[in-house]
Deep mutational scan, measured.
Amino acid sequence: TTYKLILNGKTLKGETTTEAVDAETAERVFKEYAKKNGVDGEWTYDDATKTFTVTE
């Protein structure tokens, strides 16, 4: 399944996708990605669109 991440950081904005077996796995991948890019904020997930959003 393809999951999407929307980054709404103070200095970094953008989108990325990952293939994962479930939302929990995708969330771990995306949180590591955000951490590596210095983005830390509020996380939300929309199951209907398989989209995570992190907003600083």
Rank of each mutant, 00 (worst) to 15 (best):
T1W: 15
T1G: 09
T2D: 08
T2G: 06
T2L: 15
T2P: 09
T2H: 12
Y3N: 00
Y3V: 01
Y3F: 09
K4E: 02
K4G: 04
K4Y: 09
L5Y: 02
L5P: 00
I6Q: 10
I6T: 05
I6A: 03
L7I: 15
L7T: 06
N8R: 07
G9E: 03
G9N: 04
K10P: 11
K10Q: 06
T11N: 15
T11E: 14
L12M: 14
K13R: 12
K13A: 14
K13P: 11
K13H: 08
G14V: 15
G14D: 14
G14Y: 09
G14Q: 15
E15G: 04
E15Q: 10
T16V: 12
T17Q: 09
T17A: 05
T17H: 12
T17R: 12
T17W: 15
T17K: 11
T18C: 04
T18I: 05
T18S: 09
T18N: 04
E19I: 12
E19C: 05
E19Y: 09
E19F: 15
E19W: 14
E19M: 15
A20F: 06
A20H: 03
A20I: 03
A20K: 03
V21Y: 09
V21K: 13
D22C: 04
D22R: 05
D22L: 06
D22V: 04
A23R: 11
A23V: 10
A23G: 13
A23D: 04
E24F: 12
E24A: 10
T25W: 12
T25N: 10
A26W: 01
A26Y: 00
A26D: 00
E27S: 09
E27I: 07
E27K: 07
E27L: 10
R28V: 14
R28F: 15
R28M: 13
R28K: 12
R28Y: 11
R28S: 07
V29Q: 10
V29W: 12
V29S: 07
V29P: 01
V29C: 04
F30N: 00
K31F: 09
E32Y: 07
Y33R: 03
Y33E: 03
Y33A: 03
A34W: 03
K35Y: 08
K35W: 13
K35V: 13
K36R: 12
K36M: 12
K36A: 04
N37S: 08
N37L: 13
N37C: 04
N37D: 05
G38S: 10
G38I: 06
G38H: 14
V39G: 03
V39A: 03
V39P: 02
D40Q: 10
D40V: 13
D40Y: 06
D40E: 07
D40C: 04
G41I: 01
E42D: 08
W43I: 03
T44P: 00
T44V: 15
T44Y: 11
Y45R: 02
Y45N: 01
Y45G: 00
D46M: 07
D46H: 08
D46L: 06
D46P: 00
D47W: 06
D47H: 09
T49A: 12
K50V: 04
K50D: 04
K50M: 06
T51V: 12
T51D: 01
T51Q: 05
T51N: 02
F52G: 00
F52H: 02
F52P: 00
T53C: 05
T53Y: 06
V54P: 01
V54Q: 01
V54E: 01
V54K: 01
T55G: 07
